[in-house]
Design a protein around this nucleic acid. Structure first.
Length: 104
DNA sequence: AGGGTGACGATCA
DNA sequence: ATGATCGCCACCC
């Protein structure tokens, strides 16, 4: 019998797909990615996916308001990478007004 | 089946 | 502004 070919689709897959759509020089937030992926109250899961799925533009996902959530050296790396892409920061926050990506 | 996890978010002091 | 606390929820073992 034909089972559903894909079996169950963990939200993680949708989340990873969403993150892959963020173009260079743009950023998004955990909450926005979660919402675009269909689980609006699960921003925390986005973080987990970023940690487990390799090959994603991880540096383009920020905390609410454009804050860097990743602690320690990785946080510094993230900021460096983003600024290299042209993302401007204001204090500790990225300028979402100018660089937030809007998923269609 | 149940409990722990997590790069969160909103709220409060 | 910053730091602590609480609520949320799919996923993993």
């Amino acid at each position: 019998m034909a089972k559903k070919s894909a079996g169950k689709r963990p939200i993680s897959i949708a989340i990873a797909a969403i993150i892959r759509r963020i173009p260079r020089g743009k950023v998004s937030t955990y909450g926005a990615v979660a919402e675009a992926a269909g689980c609006p109250r699960n921003a925390r899961h986005v973080a987990k996916v970023l940690n487990q799925v390799h090959g994603l533009p991880w540096q383009r996902v920020l905390g609410s308001g454009g804050r860097i959530s990743l602690p320690g050296e990785y946080g510094l790396e993230q900021r460096f990478l983003l600024e290299s892409e042209g993302v401007r920061f204001r204090g500790r926050k990225a300028d979402l007004k100018a660089h937030e990506h809007h998923f269609e």
